[in-house]
Simulated scan of single mutants.
Amino acid sequence: MSRPPLHWSCLNHCGACCRLAPAERQEALQALSDEQQTIYLEMVGEDGWCRHFDQGGRRCKIYEQRPDFCRVSGLADLFAVATEEVNDFAIDCCRQQIRSVHGGRSLELRKFERLIRSPQNSDD
């Protein structure tokens, strides 16, 4: 019996992608244009988190106006991911970042794994 397909979706109150520390995100930073790198680096707070991340509420304060590189579709474009592979790419990126920020046995990773197994529209 085959498993149902996974469907990427953004996990509310996770914030793992808002951990922008350049030393920890070299691959992502190098994929950006010079202009995007400038914006990215201006967004990094002293603690390595995006200055637009509300750590108490664990949400983005500029979600609707966030830069393209903060969107799954923007990352897929940066890394030249084929349209049919964007879902799997997004899932892999999120898993990696959630593990890095919250840990491999974290509640956030468990919630993300449940979320991607229940079909729904993405919140890119």
Results as ranks from 00 to 15, higher is better:
residue 25 R to P: 11
residue 2 S to H: 14
residue 78 L to W: 03
residue 86 V to F: 00
residue 14 C to R: 13
residue 96 Q to Y: 10
residue 32 L to Q: 03
residue 28 A to P: 04
residue 109 L to S: 09
residue 55 Q to Y: 00
residue 91 I to P: 00
residue 32 L to D: 02
residue 74 G to N: 10
residue 118 S to C: 09
residue 65 Q to I: 04
residue 62 I to K: 02
residue 63 Y to Q: 05
residue 36 Q to A: 14
residue 48 G to H: 03
residue 18 C to K: 06
residue 34 D to M: 11
residue 44 V to R: 07
residue 122 S to C: 13
residue 95 R to H: 03
residue 99 R to G: 06
residue 27 E to Y: 09
residue 107 L to T: 07
residue 36 Q to L: 10
residue 13 H to W: 09
residue 89 F to I: 04
residue 84 E to F: 07
residue 99 R to S: 14
residue 62 I to H: 00
residue 53 F to L: 03
residue 104 G to P: 03
residue 121 N to T: 12
residue 7 H to S: 09
residue 116 I to T: 00
residue 85 E to R: 06
residue 79 F to Y: 02
residue 43 M to F: 14
residue 26 Q to N: 06
residue 74 G to L: 11
residue 29 L to F: 09
residue 119 P to C: 13
residue 26 Q to W: 05
residue 6 L to W: 06
residue 71 R to W: 08
residue 38 T to I: 14
residue 23 A to T: 15
residue 42 E to L: 15
residue 34 D to K: 05
residue 42 E to C: 15
residue 115 L to H: 04
residue 102 H to A: 15
residue 81 V to A: 00
residue 95 R to G: 01
residue 99 R to H: 14
residue 100 S to C: 08
residue 117 R to D: 15
residue 109 L to V: 06
residue 100 S to Y: 11
residue 11 L to N: 06
residue 14 C to I: 09
residue 94 C to P: 12
residue 102 H to M: 07
residue 16 A to K: 04
residue 16 A to T: 10
residue 22 P to R: 15
residue 118 S to W: 03
residue 41 L to D: 03
residue 38 T to C: 13
residue 35 E to W: 09
residue 113 E to T: 03
residue 39 I to R: 14
residue 17 C to D: 07
residue 21 A to N: 13
residue 7 H to T: 07
residue 6 L to S: 12
residue 40 Y to I: 10
residue 56 G to I: 07
residue 41 L to F: 11
residue 65 Q to Y: 01
residue 91 I to M: 02
residue 74 G to Q: 04
residue 44 V to S: 12
residue 50 C to S: 12
residue 26 Q to A: 03
residue 24 E to P: 02
residue 44 V to N: 10
residue 12 N to D: 15
residue 22 P to S: 11
residue 62 I to D: 02
residue 93 C to E: 05
residue 23 A to R: 03
residue 73 S to T: 01
residue 101 V to S: 09
residue 46 E to H: 13
residue 16 A to R: 07
residue 9 S to I: 00
residue 47 D to S: 14
residue 114 R to K: 15
residue 75 L to I: 01
residue 53 F to M: 12
residue 99 R to V: 08
residue 33 S to D: 08
residue 18 C to M: 01
residue 96 Q to A: 15
residue 57 G to K: 10
residue 47 D to G: 07
residue 14 C to P: 14
residue 41 L to W: 12
residue 14 C to Y: 08
residue 67 P to A: 04
residue 15 G to K: 01
residue 15 G to W: 06
residue 10 C to A: 08
